[in-house]
Amino acid sequence: MNEFSESHDTDAVREFTVSDADAGPYALTEGPDGALWFTLVHRGAVARRDPDDGLVTVHPVGDGPTVITAGPDGALWFTEYRAQRIGRITPEGDYSSFAPLTPGGGPFGITAGPDGAIWFTLSSADRVGRVTVDGDITEYPAPGAFPSALTTGPDGALWCTLNQGNAVGRLTVDGHGTAYPLPTEGAAPVGIAAGPDGALWFTEIGAGRIGRITVDGDITEYPLSGPAAKPHAVTAGPDGALWFTEWGSGRVGRITVDGRLTSYALSGADCEPHGITAHDGALWCALETGSLARIEVQP
């Protein structure tokens, strides 16, 4: 267990060192215990930041823990990209894992589904999986190539980005898939989140755009500063806007549901922000260089 140290502080942004640069904080989520949980992708560990004193506890898990989410069973669930497993850890640190049916599938995205199960993508196998809290696994063909992030939509279906299919996919809980091609070639979508407006919002890391898709498949795209921004992850904020990381520019962006954009600089253009989540009334993102950044919601 070690306590964070603050490394960057502005009016809106504070950064806290939580690991050395080689550990690679990658994705994060608020746990059922009110703490902030995050993956250390290069260390093979999941860590917990205490909400009261900021102490960080590190738990060894399988190789390459990547995306993490709170499950319906009071535990945290995450993908182990290199170990090719789905991991589960309780707030007390008890760890277990489950092997997908397809070997070498490259589990990446993960989310709590509308049916009380956990859903995940197998990016390298073009499949989407479902695991119950008891560990029973089912898999379905993805509606396109290289499914990446996924989330539960307001329509009770799973929505995912199809990074190499240049599309957004929809999958019902019984495995029926639909793909919606993107207007921009080479968009390479990655992150996706349900917005407060009843639509899904996603990042286009290849085109430097933020996208919005309705449950009927209508798509709108909003350009950022350019492709070099490389937007990666996106989440709904406590202020009714969408927040996203710009991996290429070392910034966090904010977009309102009517398309107005603002952004916040982090400690450096090379700090590699990846995952982002709402926590304790603010936005938090993981910097692969070893820190967590807290972005205050401005009035």
Score class of each variant (00 low, 15 high):
residue 224 L to Q: 03
residue 228 A to P: 00
residue 59 H to M: 13
residue 267 S to A: 15
residue 186 G to I: 08
residue 160 C to V: 11
residue 288 E to F: 10
residue 145 A to Q: 13
residue 127 R to H: 11
residue 133 V to H: 10
residue 280 D to M: 12
residue 115 D to S: 09
residue 169 G to W: 09
residue 117 A to S: 14
residue 117 A to Q: 11
residue 41 V to C: 04
residue 248 G to Q: 03
residue 138 T to H: 05
residue 177 G to L: 07
residue 192 I to Q: 02
residue 273 P to Q: 03
residue 290 G to D: 08
residue 293 A to P: 10
residue 189 P to Y: 02
residue 90 T to G: 01
residue 102 T to Y: 02
residue 39 T to E: 02
residue 102 T to I: 12
residue 136 D to L: 11
residue 142 A to P: 06
residue 100 P to R: 00
residue 9 D to F: 12
residue 12 A to M: 12
residue 120 F to P: 05
residue 203 T to I: 00
residue 138 T to Q: 13
residue 240 G to H: 05
residue 40 L to G: 00
residue 147 P to M: 05
residue 86 I to G: 07
residue 101 L to C: 02
residue 192 I to E: 03
residue 297 V to D: 03
residue 22 D to C: 08
residue 112 A to C: 08
residue 159 W to Q: 08
residue 47 A to T: 01
residue 1 M to L: 13
residue 160 C to W: 00
residue 38 F to A: 06
residue 185 E to M: 11
residue 67 V to S: 00
residue 97 S to E: 15
residue 8 H to F: 15
residue 93 G to D: 06
residue 77 W to G: 11
residue 161 T to D: 02
residue 243 W to M: 10
residue 241 A to D: 15
residue 41 V to P: 00
residue 211 G to Q: 01
residue 16 F to T: 02
residue 27 A to M: 09
residue 21 A to G: 13
residue 161 T to K: 01
residue 132 T to K: 03
residue 176 H to M: 15
residue 202 F to M: 01
residue 120 F to T: 05
residue 114 P to F: 11
residue 271 C to A: 08
residue 25 P to H: 11
residue 122 L to N: 09
residue 119 W to N: 12
residue 243 W to A: 10
residue 280 D to Y: 00
residue 163 N to L: 10
residue 247 W to F: 13
residue 216 D to I: 07
residue 17 T to W: 00
residue 264 Y to D: 09
residue 17 T to P: 07
residue 263 S to Y: 13
residue 100 P to F: 01
residue 70 A to T: 12
residue 10 T to S: 13
residue 251 R to G: 07
residue 175 G to D: 10
residue 233 A to D: 10
residue 182 L to W: 02
residue 168 V to I: 15
residue 111 T to C: 15
residue 246 E to V: 01
residue 200 L to C: 10
residue 193 A to E: 04
residue 293 A to I: 04
residue 5 S to Q: 11
residue 257 V to W: 15
residue 278 A to M: 14
residue 291 S to E: 12
residue 289 T to W: 05
residue 158 L to F: 06
residue 51 P to H: 03
residue 286 A to V: 03
residue 173 V to M: 14
residue 291 S to N: 14
